[in-house]
Design a protein around this nucleic acid. Structure first.
Lengths: 210, 210
DNA sequence: GTAGCAACGGAACAAACCATTCCGTTCCGC
DNA sequence: GCGGAACGGAATGGTTTGTTCCGTTGCTAC
């Protein structure tokens, strides 16, 4: 009589599938949120019913993916705020978020489902955390004066746009772009950045249902 | 007996529609290349038949849009090469290409149609022109040493990723990102950019038929 | 050892979507 | 005025895709 927390056999297999499905869903839906759900199943190497056993419908899967991304973002931000140096916290945060492709998860998928109130709360918290991160970076004096919190969105968006078929290579190229951007954010002496800076809520339109 | 080059009446209206349709197609397909063709008609304020009178099918419209973008890119590059100063040529080129949203046109649409041989030739020419632009920028000594031609693709991709509902505002925000990136490209003293630089042809996969 | 059921694969179904065609209408050009 | 270029938009037919259904498998519990 194996325990409920099996480490092999049928239960174990099911647990593996849980992860395989989420992994496949990330892969497929980040590439194109409008992909058929059958592609996810194929990618995960399971049948369609394995998917429907876990999620009531496509939208629920999308929503979970996105919400997970949002939570990850907040977790990274909180971890970064624990860092003593404000500049390291700021740049480290950006790097980890870019590596985890969290921005695609939250932004690319937005609008493909109706959000829950809880997601709204988490999104609001994201804003606060980002504000804190930027404020602390400014306090170190190493962050360009005319950079605002919303510039983070601009930076992450730019990095997430880089994409090649190979995942590891994508990460490398994104790091290259991020390095350029951070390099520029660190210039405290140069000329001002052009245009009105991005305003709070200026990217919120994405969350409107498609 | 009005001349063939009418400036009013039916002919004129048709000519206006020509432009309205192209304009609408850019707007709609850049937002999502998989949009139904009826959306383009709606955006242009014409019926569907006005579209099919001009293009044999959806793919032809997509192809024209993309090819026009490619030609515009080459035209801008050639114009820039006429500029005496290599650095101004380089940065001016980037700015104009970003403003015209040419990168989305060529890259975002790639893979939605089967390319013509002529497009292949134009694409090859793009590569040569970009090489020349980068070489001249390097010659001025103002371009960071470890920047390669393909970094242009990275930069344009990053800028094109920025998007808000309002077109003029989108342009402003893209300019802001471009300013950051160019700012970094101009740093001749700092630390090296990470990772192997993008290789020639590394972005060619996009052109594979979807 | 074996009955029972959790988990599954994938065919089947119905609804939605969409490129393209078709036809009746309008009104400019001659 | 008449012929036809240009058009609006409904109709069509094929494809795509979310979801359901059913038969099978092989652990699990006793």
């Amino acid at each position: 009589m194996p325990s409920p927390n099996d480490t092999s056999g049928r239960r174990k297999q099911a647990a593996l599938n849980d992860e395989a499905i989420l992994e496949a869903a990330r892969e497929v839906f980040l590439n194109d949120p409008r992909s058929p759900i059958s592609d996810v199943a194929k990618h995960a190497g399971v049948g369609i019913s394995a998917l429907y056993r876990r999620y009531p419908g496509k939208e629920d899967l999308l929503r979970k993916l996105c919400h997970d991304g949002l939570r990850r973002y907040n977790a990274e931000a909180e971890a970064a705020l624990a860092e003593p140096d404000g500049w390291t916290a700021f740049t480290g945060f950006l790097g980890r978020v870019v590596d985890a492709d969290v921005h695609s998860l939250t932004v690319h998928l937005a609008g493909t489902f109706t959000p829950t109130p809880e997601m709204g709360a988490d999104a609001a918290r994201s804003g606060e955390l980002a504000d804190a991160l930027v404020a602390r970076a400014h306090a170190t004096g190493r962050l360009r004066a005319d950079v605002v919190t919303q510039d983070i969105g601009l930076v992450l968006e730019s990095c997430a746009a880089v994409r090649v078929p190979d995942r590891a290579r994508t990460a490398e190229l994104r790091r290259r772009v991020l390095a350029m951007l951070v390099d520029s954010l660190a210039r405290t002496g140069g000329s001002d950045l052009p245009g009105p800076p991005p305003a709070p809520g200026e990217f919120a339109w994405r969350w409107r249902r498609a």
